[in-house]
């Protein structure tokens, strides 16, 4: 199928894009990599009158070092996030998760900012961003503001980005030298995760961050498990005991891929595996 007719705008600056967004309001849709939006338009689940393509705005692409953080432009592709030296060195968890997104062709087009703005609870990048304490920089008519990871994901497909705003970049506090693993559970290759667990640990184990994918309407932190892991040793028994708490406070969906209680079971098992791998003990 092909989308309903729309007008196409290709701004070359964020200001120009914001002006177009201001002018067309609810009738407009931002186009990033198009790997979620174009299927939606083709299935005619949405029919914007105006599509504003960000691909011509070069300032939104790229990854830079900014002291205690690395900064990832919203239009940086999954492919580039996966391969970038700064990401591997300071936010290994993101490199590992980006490698698990969809397939090669989609990683060449899909963007970091687009995936986070889309906020699909089964998306692979939300939980790692949350676990790493990402800060989201959004720009609107009145300038830029920063949203903390805990406030960014609001609900299913809903974020703190306002209707007149664009996500421009994401700051990831450096986790230099932290071990990391993204454990994704799927039935077939290149599928969205039924459940996935994002783990990064300092030492084995001084501190741990655990993010959960598809265990509720937004990505979640497994805080009880994080607390139990802090100062623990990375032994099979210790880690499995801490992972027993991974599903606390979660509210996963029941669907054709699995019932909620099955997903909670998966979250506990996968958390144990991910922590052991992140700590280099498996």
């Amino acid at each position: 199928m092909i989308p309903v007719k729309f007008d196409y705008l290709a701004p070359t600056s964020v200001e120009e894009a914001l002006a177009a967004l201001g002018e067309h309001g609810d009738d407009a849709k931002i186009l990033a990599g198009g790997q979620s939006l174009l299927p939606v338009l083709r299935m005619r689940l949405n029919a914007p009158e105006v599509v504003i393509d960000l691909n011509g705005i070069s300032s939104l692409r790229g990854i830079r070092d900014d002291g205690d953080a690395i900064v990832i432009g919203a239009m940086t592709t999954h492919h580039d996030v996966r391969d970038h030296e700064l990401v591997k060195e300071h936010a290994l968890l993101l490199a590992k998760a980006a490698a698990e997104v969809a397939d090669s062709q989609i990683r060449h087009r899909g963007t970091f900012g687009g995936a986070l703005a889309h906020a699909d609870p089964a998306g692979d990048l939300g939980a790692p961003a949350l676990a790493l304490g990402a800060q989201f920089v959004v720009q609107g008519p009145g300038g830029s503001r920063t949203v903390e990871a805990d406030d960014f994901f609001v609900d299913l497909f809903e974020t703190a980005i306002g209707d007149d705003e664009i996500l421009t970049e994401v700051r990831i506090p450096k986790h230099t030298g932290w071990g990391a693993h993204y454990e994704k559970f799927v039935r077939v290759a290149h599928q969205w995760p039924i459940v996935a667990v994002a783990v990064t640990v300092k030492g084995s184990i001084d501190e741990a961050r655990v993010g959960l994918t598809n265990m509720g309407s937004t990505p979640l932190r497994a805080r009880a498990t994080e607390a139990a892991l802090a100062g623990a040793s990375a032994t099979e028994d210790g880690v499995r005991a801490a992972a027993e708490q991974a599903a606390e406070g979660t509210n996963p969906p029941s669907d054709l891929n699995g019932a909620a209680d099955y997903r909670q079971h998966l979250a506990r098992v996968l958390t144990g595996r991910a922590v052991l791998k992140a700590a280099g003990a498996a």
Binding site: Y8, G34, L38, P39, H108, R109
Partner: peptide, 16 residues
């Protein structure tokens, strides 16, 4: 291939 990298051409607009 678009500028040398693989893409799914059903998921790219001709204008892009």
């Amino acid at each position: 291939h678009l500028d040398g990298t693989s893409v799914k051409s059903c998921n790219v607009l001709a204008v892009q």
